[in-house]
Design a protein around this nucleic acid. Sequence first.
DNA 1: ACCTGAACACCGTTCAAGT
DNA 2: ACCTGAACACCGTTCAAGT
Lengths: 178, 178
Amino acid sequence: MVLDAALALADESGLDAVTMQAVASRLGVTPMAIYRHVGDKGALLDGVVERLLGEVRLPSEALPWPDRLRATARGVRRIGQRHPGVFPLVLQRLVATPAALRVRDTVQRGLVDAGVDPGRTAQAERLISTAVLGFVVSEVGGRFRNHSKRTVDGDFERLLELLSGLLESERAQPARWS
Amino acid sequence: MVLDAALALADESGLDAVTMQAVASRLGVTPMAIYRHVGDKGALLDGVVERLLGEVRLPSEALPWPDRLRATARGVRRIGQRHPGVFPLVLQRLVATPAALRVRDTVQRGLVDAGVDPGRTAQAERLISTAVLGFVVSEVGGRFRNHSKRTVDGDFERLLELLSGLLESERAQPARWS
DNA sequence: ACCTGAACACCGTTCAAGT
DNA sequence: ACCTGAACACCGTTCAAGT
């Protein structure tokens, strides 16, 4: 598949290495052949981002919500670390694709179970996702490259704690689990 | 100056329009002339990001810390909105440049005045900055483009409230102001 | 010191043509 | 339906040469 080739290239040599010609030659094909399968280079990158989000390992719905939300955040981070070349694009593209909705809905269900007022889960999800994505993009994009892995790991765990705190302040009804 | 031309191009026509040849022709000069002034296209973009951060309006140190921190965040957001083409690069480049340190130190002084344990201001600053930058990059990069301005403005104000909450939980000593 | 001309290998993309 | 050849205008960058 075209998207696999593009993602493999990005993982091996960075986003700049993802050119139509490089993707084509990895598939043993001429560059223009690709235009039959993706409309455009932009569409190619959109497809790769979608694949990335689809790769996020989501936790079992049977887990209590605090573990579930933490596991989701860690799953997103793991994908970022696995694909640092393309991950930053996640913050620049629309959130309405199926794979993006899949992650979003998992978070929103977690929030509902946590007892967040149903009228406020959408905003809470946006802020939580933005914080987590912003962190991971910073990390894999090199913004923290002066800091040790231990420091960055500690920052991420602290972020998760703070997001739990956010939920406490947001809860209107008793939680359904926990 | 070369950086001004590059920034103006990005503002008018997006990041893709910032090519060595376009910058050169805007200056009425041949493309290779630019290599005398910036080493590289990467260095050019670094320079533009630096200029951006230098443009952030920082609040007076005389303000009470809660207003000061809020004003700093709003100042960052305003620059993002003013320069949506280049702003996303802020999350991908190192934080150790002079203009970046200028913003960072303002936040850290705010945290100290808020009574955050001095051993923890660095982490708190990183998390706060990451959350704010992640939000603004999402906003100007179009991740929220399905939402109305009112919704996005509301999200940002809510984010600021939550960051204040973070400070409450982080305070070890009585605040110096407020 | 600064700018230029000519040239390099490489982009994304189109179009008409082939099977 | 899918792939190809040839071609387009445009990239970033180098090097030797000019003032």
